[in-house]
């Protein structure tokens, strides 16, 4: 099944997240990731939801989300016409012998080392899901102790934007 990215503008009220999450669980939709934060308008939050499913499912998800009174606007983002990122923090085992190699990998991925201890390195990476997965894959050999991810956020390229009142090009 394909992954689809939905940008959802919602009222910035308590309880909205639980309504959205509840809808997904009771209708049996699969969420790959969900990230939420306030927008430039403090009354409005924006959720980026990555859904796993075929076109029928994505249409159902959009329509059902639209029925929630707190949902203001939904747009499915075109992969080729949007930028999507996730952020991960990865804590990996590091000894004197492996530290140099890890640092090299980190540089190749343009990731960052944000914390060091005698036997660990903590790496921050942001990028598309594939890139994060590739780094994770490379670091496995050293032993990953912990990994935290934000879930995908995404934005359209160029002059397109999603606002409460319009989503046309300017």
């Amino acid at each position: 099944m394909a992954k689809h990215t939905l940008s959802v503008l919602v009222e910035n009220h308590p309880g909205v997240l639980s309504r959205v999450a509840g809808l997904f669980s009771r209708r049996g939709f699969n969420i790959d990731s969900l990230a939420v934060g306030v927008t430039e308008n403090p009354e409005v939050s924006r959720m980026t939801i990555v859904v796993d499913g075929d076109d029928y499912i994505v249409e159902q998800v959009s329509k059902q989300l639209n029925k929630l009174i707190d949902v203001i606007k939904i747009k499915q983002l075109d992969k080729n016409d949007s930028v999507s990122r996730e952020l991960a923090l990865i804590k990996v085992n590091a000894t004197a012998a492996t530290r140099g190699e890890i640092i090299q990998i980190v540089e190749i991925f343009r990731a960052k080392i944000v914390d060091v201890s005698k036997n660990t390195l903590t790496i921050e990476i942001s990028g598309g899901t594939d890139k994060v997965a590739a780094l994770e894959d490379m670091l496995k050999q050293f032993g990953i102790k912990e990994i935290v991810r934000t879930g995908t956020i995404a934005i359209e390229r160029g002059n397109k934007y999603i606002k409460v009142t319009n989503n046309d090009e300017e």
Partner: peptide
């Protein structure tokens, strides 16, 4: 009147 019913 409910678009979500259409095609469900």
């Amino acid at each position: 009147i409910d678009p979500a019913e259409i095609g469900k």
